[in-house]
Simulated assay, not measured.
Amino acid sequence: MGEGSEPAGGEKYRGLIAGAQRETRIKVAVAHPCDEVSLRGAIEAHKLGLIEPILVAPLARVRNAADAAHLEISGFELVESAHSHESAAKAVGLVTAGRVEALMKGSIHTDELMGAVVAREGGIRTERRISHCFIMDVPGHPEPLIITDAAVNIAPDLDAKVDIIQNAIDLAHAMGVREVRVAILSAMETVTAKVPSTIEAAALCKMAERGQITGALLDGPLALDNAISPEAAAIKKIVSPVAGRANVLVVPDLEAGNMLAKSLSFLAGADAAGIVLGARVPIILTSRADSLLSRLASCAVAVMVAAARRKAAGSPLQ
């Protein structure tokens, strides 16, 4: 695969990486890659032909980290910063200068990076709500599952969920998903005033019917089993093109999404790639616990999103 060796495991992720390798390599500002994990992810993504990293960090720290891990970074552009806060600000500045098509989180806290992204002065927000998507590679499941939002929006209201869903739909299309099937999750499949998320789910489905959400089939409320298991949907007599076949799962709030994603990771052996959408460029958001394959898949997804935006805009950079 490309210039590097093929990562082991994760058939669905290997497919994403192969798809991204057919696109143009993108320039990525890596914010504060001052440890082995974040450096190795950027270097391996470069070897696979996915990204051209620009490392934004205190130069002594990043070089010491590379030397300690026996990693070669001499071929990469380095941008000096004094500390992690400035790393985030300068990485975002590379976006506003039109030099990069994506951001990548290094050994920096998510809040610090996202603070620079949403800053009133020099930030890169758009009219679209910023949201996070996990792209889950679940063993035994036929296709990747997109889960949103499990990392950014704590308790999104109805209007925020419209953007959260649209971001996920656009992501799925960028990944090459032919039919995007969105399940609005709750604890049950019936609408009841006692469970507010069921009412929101019904409203979101009606909004899709009226063209306020586009590009996908929506159904909800659906319990998780009815969303991903055809047998469970049949037992409940739920007939829809989404029930039992969903490839996008929209959770009621961050707590539910975080528990769902981590349950799949730690109990079902799933890998979780992560990306933030809704800003001027995709943001590769990974955890210290993520495998190298997950980090590469996150980069691959960012390449696909950047390529889709480039094609839509008809220009090399957004």
Rank of each mutant, 00 (worst) to 15 (best):
E3R: 14
G4S: 10
A8I: 15
R25F: 05
A29S: 14
V30P: 06
V37A: 13
G41Y: 10
E44G: 02
H46G: 06
L48G: 01
E52N: 13
P53A: 07
P53T: 07
R61P: 04
V62W: 05
N64T: 09
A65Y: 02
A68G: 02
S74W: 06
G75M: 10
G75V: 12
E77C: 01
L78Q: 15
V79K: 04
S81Q: 02
A91E: 03
G93L: 13
R99C: 06
R99H: 13
E101A: 15
K105F: 11
I108W: 09
H109E: 15
D111I: 08
D111C: 11
E112M: 08
A119Y: 11
R120G: 15
R125T: 13
R129C: 05
S131E: 03
H132W: 00
D137N: 14
G140L: 14
I147S: 07
T148M: 02
D149M: 13
D149N: 12
A160P: 00
V162A: 05
I169R: 06
M175I: 02
G176Q: 08
V177M: 11
E179M: 10
E179Y: 00
V180W: 03
V182G: 00
V182W: 00
A183K: 07
L185E: 06
A187D: 02
M188P: 05
T190S: 13
T190P: 04
T192D: 11
A193Q: 14
A193N: 15
T198F: 10
E200F: 09
E200T: 07
E200M: 08
A203M: 15
A208F: 03
E209L: 09
A216P: 09
L217M: 10
L218H: 00
G220K: 00
L222S: 08
A227I: 08
A227M: 08
A233G: 09
A234L: 03
A234C: 04
A234H: 05
I235L: 09
I238Y: 02
P241R: 01
A243W: 00
L249Y: 03
V251C: 13
E255L: 14
E255C: 08
A256L: 12
A261W: 07
K262A: 14
L264M: 15
A270R: 09
A273M: 02
I275R: 01
I275A: 05
I275H: 06
I275E: 05
V276C: 12
L277M: 11
A279Q: 06
V281Q: 13
P282V: 01
P282G: 01
I284S: 07
I284P: 07
A289W: 11
D290P: 02
D290G: 07
S291A: 05
S291F: 02
L292T: 02
R295C: 06
R295T: 04
L296I: 03
A297M: 06
A302R: 06
A306S: 15
P316M: 06
